[in-house]
Design a protein around this nucleic acid. Sequence first.
RNA 1: ACGCCCGUAGCUCAGUUGGUAGAGCAGAUGGCUUACAACCAUCAGGUCGGCGGUUCGAGUCCGUCCGGGCGUACCA
Length: 839
Amino acid sequence: MERTVPDRPALDGLEEKWAARWEADGTYRFDRSTPRERVYAIDTPPLTVSGSLHVGHAFSFTHTDTVARYKRMRGFSVFYPMGWDDNGLATERRVQNYFGVRCDPSLAYDPSFEPPGSSGEPVAISRPNFVELCLRLVAEDEKAFEAVWRRIGLSCDWSHFYTTIDEASRRASQRGFLRLLARGEAYTAEAPTLWDVDFRTAVAQAELEDRERPGAYHRLCFHAADGSDLLVDTTRPELLPACVAVVAHPDDDRYARLTGSTVRTPLFGAEVPFVTHPLAQPDKGTGAAMVCTFGDTTDVTWWRELSLPVRAVVGRDGRLAPSPPEGLAPGGAELYRSNLAGLTVRQAQRRVVELLRDSGEMQGEPRPITHPVKFYEKGDHPLEIVTSRQWFFRTIAHRDELLQRGAELRWHPAHMRSRYEHWVEGLTGDWLISRQRFFGVPFPVWYRLDTNGRPDYSDPLLASEESLPVDPSTDAPPGFDESQRGKPGGFAAEPDVMDTWATSSLTPQIAGRWEDDPDLFARVFPMDLRPQGHDIIRTWLFATIVRSHLEFGCLPWRDAAISGWILDPDRKKMSKSKGNVLTPMDLLVRYGSDAVRYWAASARLGTDTAFDEGQMKIGRRLAIKILNVSRFVLTLPQGDEPPAGAGNLEPVDASMLASLDALVAEATAAFEGYDHARALERTETFFWSFCDDYVELVKNRAYGALGESRALSARLALEEALSALLRLFAPFLPFVTEESWSWWQDGSVHRAPWPSPGSTGGDPSVLHAARRVLAEIRRAKTEAGASLRAEVAKTTVSGPAALLGAVEAADDDLRQSGAVADLQLVEAGGDLAVEVVLA
RNA sequence: ACGCCCGUAGCUCAGUUGGUAGAGCAGAUGGCUUACAACCAUCAGGUCGGCGGUUCGAGUCCGUCCGGGCGUACCA
């Protein structure tokens, strides 16, 4: 092949040039005729399209890309789709702010609606209008994401692109739901549920987070039947009207006399049973606790296990219900109506405290504390517990099987398995999948309405699999027509949508086109790799295992590669207010994509990593060095002789190639163990030594200073090493390696075979010894303040025979590179010693 | 409270079954050397968080404590 090497190679413009070429050539296209055993399938994380990309995204996706590129060079057909997770609350919230709207499902669709913009009071719009806006905004965001992914050189196959709201995803999600429902693994139930009062939706255990909040113990006086006071500490006095019992530990002698009796609540005068339960802790507060429906999850346990009634007071809007619950004394009910109805929880707490002070039923003042409170991770107010009808997937019944799946999975790094195990062991209930929201995959479910127009939830009407995806709010169920919607004897749609995890848990099924394309699915599922961050082990990873286990009885993938987080240089979260946030695109433009990838790939899996522009500068330097050394190797004067066989290589050249073989073996083993950072680090170390020592050593010979035959050996070795190094670097620095490869090779380096160790029979100790001597010569010159080109009158190397033999094998190269007039070898005991006399 | 990870040079980190502490950056000094001044060479930086133990020998293995991060649980 004709060589075309630019005079002044540079990084500028490589990204645009090669991204376009790869797209045009289909370099990364998945070959779906490949048999399963030659396919390597990756279950890509569909990023939440929230409108802003973070460097952390570029970080973890680069890790995955290095593996994809490695496997491709190993001859696998790599199935590397790309997707966006656009459905769900993140998008809804962004749409509300961006367009100045809010969704009101009771409104009718307005085909001519145009959003008002973000200023002013939000405009209420119909659900179909709202979904349209979601899709519009998501499309804009996705364009920006794709531009970054292309710029950073992700080798995904854009023809296998999906979003979690697209038609195929909705079909897969609804199909998966119907299959689990048919098998009894999905069910609907009315139950106390953790509830976000701002978003007005149920939330799942996986979406909780604890936050330390100020609170206060209030010591309340309940009244026992014998006229004595019973003191109870609570942090939530506003729930007093919801009190259904007082509980103490069965072994707590202080309260033994009360067990089985009733006590009367302060202010509201409800008669509630005094009960015992082992969860009550004698050392907390007074040892007696009030049970409310519902103040926390322990209340739910007590309520269920002690068969207590429900006296709900907090509504779905986070305010106290307009009417008092059953069971209050008449005066108490009136007190509730005139003082508490309609108040927020905070307002109600203040009012109840005032009332308690007035009635003398609070002992002392509230004692401030801070305590952990459960929040929805995206929410601003503490979660309440309200009773509502929800949909669930069964997980508790499968806990042991799910633990077993976690044990089968190969985790990288291995210790991430314990996070999964802790999560599964700590599950407290089945997986809650329904959300009272708008932009999500709807349940393919309707309910019959009885003659009074009331829905029958016990026997839902289901869509057929052939009809999927359906929207029950606009499609009629089988056997009905639209005119019967909402009419007695007709039907009503299930109003909820599925949580986004209920769909994204199917990414292997979605990307593999489960049931839509059985041939493809059989070639890619179960997949090989799940790459993701450690923060979503309890959500995405867990959920995907649940779905695969319940549907197929197997793991969805064999390996999980868990990336760490990106930290600010000062170990803190980056913040926009500090003005130090750089978008990935800024960095890609400033340092070049290969440089940013170098920084990302330098970090091992599972390790949180400091954002470090210094590393990007080093990566940029490495990329430039690759261009320059390529230019050197490829523009050496070409002789006339035909290529000699490997047996004719000079010992120094064979020695270098032997070390290269060891490097190839090491880098390969590192990649096989999902340790991309080690593969990069070893390759980089070898590369710099190759440039600084080997190239300097043989440079003059390669130019022909010792004759054409010996020059040829150097050139062959240099080219072989360059070829291997470009391929070893290709997974990390795809642009600069492709550029250099294109100067002298056909096809893409990313389709070239991964290097395999040759059999040059070289002795690594030759180059090793020569480097030591060369270093001593350099030191002597530097210490004399002389140029490295300065002449050396005499160099004497002394040492044991074996080492001297190695030096002798490189003696002409040492004379040339060191400008040494006289090189003497003297056998002696001990280690190698070098004496240098400058001219 | 329990579990997991981390603590090595000023900074970022290597250190694979125990065998004389490594690299890059930053710093100092010198050099325009026909691939590369966006370059090169040389130098100087460390009681490997503390204490104890096993061993001929511990950054590495065991125990314990301290500091940091995360996870799970608890939430009256």
